[in-house]
Nucleic acid binder design. Structure first.
Ligand SMILES: NC(=O)c1ccc[n+]([C@@H]2O[C@H](COP(=O)([O-])OP(=O)(O)OC[C@H]3O[C@@H](n4cnc5c(N)ncnc54)[C@H](O)[C@@H]3O)[C@@H](O)[C@H]2O)c1
Ligand SMILES: NC(=O)c1ccc[n+]([C@@H]2O[C@H](COP(=O)([O-])OP(=O)(O)OC[C@H]3O[C@@H](n4cnc5c(N)ncnc54)[C@H](O)[C@@H]3O)[C@@H](O)[C@H]2O)c1
Lengths: 213, 213
DNA sequence: TTACAATTGTTATAATTTTCACATAATAAT
DNA sequence: ATTATTATGTGAAAATTATAACAATTGTAA
């Protein structure tokens, strides 16, 4: 099989293009050029075209891209032509914020269940959902066919939760704990690490301060 | 001046090394090799040494790195030899979770003030802090010498908040709204975008499913 | 002392990613 | 019809980043 190797940065940008197109579509725009997309999201026009070229030819020379059509393709490419139920483990500050966030739903994600270790939290209500005991994780996620697990527990529990997710057949993990988790190579895992992002800022602010001395 | 161009990926990893070293230090470890660091955080040993080489020579050949010393250097490099007060705009789900998160404090960050547009939220208490009206942003951030602003308002307000931050002399922005913000080139801005991260997962899960047909 | 083992710092090589430039195709104007 | 204009798709070049290999240095043991 032809192995389609796509840079991760390209996938990231596809997601950005896709959301930009969603906005254009809402505003009733029908056609757009790579130049305008580039402008709208802050990359170069060549980059836009190169990115799209990984997946096919979606435009018309001399004209541009049809917004609706391209939007549909980007969603399909990103796997968003289906619903993705999520299982969140951890019903603390972050877990609750995530569970009640409307942002998730916008693009086909849906928080299907929330788990916690703490007996005091189990049974509590978060929006429509009841917090489930972690022991139920394998059964419930299998039943609901959940393929994405979200880790929002305190750091020292994160690896344990990851292990449970691996054993339960969840295929991918979104991890908020600032820890390098060990998972089998065939698990998809991404970390959302605020410290790293903040420290990118402080590094660069510091750099600028040093340069302007 | 010699312009030290460091890849962003290197800075990201420096932050990861730094936190790993913190853990080693807490556990009383005194010496470590690039191999062990690599192992601990999931990169190659050559990568670790190459990354460190951007900033100087911190190790001893045949021996390795002193954990405490290297930790101090990484913190210094990342600009964490000083405190960084943060201003969060938006006291909704996310803003509250961020404000009360202990994770921030760990590495020198401190939520110094929280702002909101909504009059109903202004004056409410979040932990030790009172939610301030957005109109106070320029004055308060200047007084507290805040250089990092965090955007946690609903999408349609995000650009406006960014503008206020720019005008107030805040030098860098951590943005949680899934929107491409327009800011002057000399502003440091990073986005934390859950959708993108989730869509990286769905793309790759989809890819694997396709490959195993 | 000298040889050996360990591990860094660095140079060279390879791989990846981005940018550039332009041939190609579609539309509009003359 | 013909020409001009616009904007895509792509191959080649440039830039960036990662990997690999090894010389240099330190500590240790014979
Ligand atoms: N709050 C944020 O804004 C934020 C942002 C980024 C990352 N994070 C990270 O997300 C994770 C969770 O953060 P949070 O702010 O939601 O923390 P939290 O303390 O509000 O919640 C922690 C979770 O761990 C569970 N837990 C804590 N102590 C436990 C114990 N003794 N036994 C069993 N379970 C226990 C709680 O039940 C809860 O589910 C942390 O790794 C944090 O660093 C948080
Ligand atoms: N909640 C999450 O877990 C989460 C995760 C990632 C990103 N985000 C993003 O963070 C942002 C905030 O999310 P949230 O969940 O905290 O939303 P929220 O609705 O809980 O809070 C929204 C904020 O905007 C303000 N606001 C809302 N409507 C307003 C109005 N009519 N007039 C004035 N102010 C108004 C609110 O006062 C509040 O400060 C969004 O862009 C969201 O996409 C949220």
């Amino acid at each position: 099989m032809k192995t389609l190797r796509v840079p991760e940065a390209t996938v990231t940008r596809m997601s950005i293009y896709s959301r930009f197109l969603e906005r254009l579509d809402r505003n009733g725009m029908t056609t757009i050029s790579s130049n305008e997309i580039a402008d709208g999201v802050g990359v170069s026009p060549a980059q836009v075209r190169k990115d799209l070229a990984y997946f096919g030819e979606f435009g018309t020379r001399g004209v541009g891209y049809n917004v609706q059509t391209l939007l549909k393709y980007t969603l399909k490419i990103l796997g968003l032509n289906q619903a993705w139920p999520l299982a969140i483990v951890g019903s603390g500050n972050l877990g609750q914020a995530l569970s009640t966030s409307r942002g998730f739903n916008a693009r086909g994600f849906r928080v299907a269940c929330v788990f916690d270790y703490d007996a005091k939290r189990v049974g509590k209500r978060i929006g429509q959902l009841l917090v489930q005991p972690i022991a139920q994780f394998p059964e419930l996620t299998r039943k609901e066919n959940i393929r994405i697990g979200v880790i929002a527990v305190r750091n020292s529990l994160a690896q344990e939760v990851a292990n449970i997710m691996v054993q339960s057949g969840v295929q991918s993990i979104l991890n908020f704990a600032p820890i390098t988790l060990r998972v089998p190579a065939d698990m998809e895992i991404r970390n959302v690490d605020l410290s790293i992002t903040l420290e990118l800022l402080t590094f660069n602010v510091g750099l600028k301060a040093a340069q302007s001395l």
